[in-house]
Amino acid sequence: MSGSPTDFLKGVVGKRVIVRLTSGVDYRGILSCLDGYMNIALEQTEEHVNGIVTNRYGDAFIRGNNGGYRSRR
């Protein structure tokens, strides 16, 4: 299946993504790597709360269980 979640994730490594947690907080950055638990590492990360930048991190690790979704942009 070419459109499967695994293929999608392989395709977005190295690209700019938005990761939204179940809490509604957005993390925008470059997806550097991920694993089978959907743990993800982001570079040049910006933390957005209600559309306002609240923090910037050089590297960030997000544990997969925080759910949410990722979007290509």
Partner: peptide, 11 residues
């Protein structure tokens, strides 16, 4: 509006 999106099945 979002482009291609991966939705976590958990929720």
């Amino acid at each position: 509006q979002l482009a291609q999106t991966l939705l976590n099945g958990n929720n």
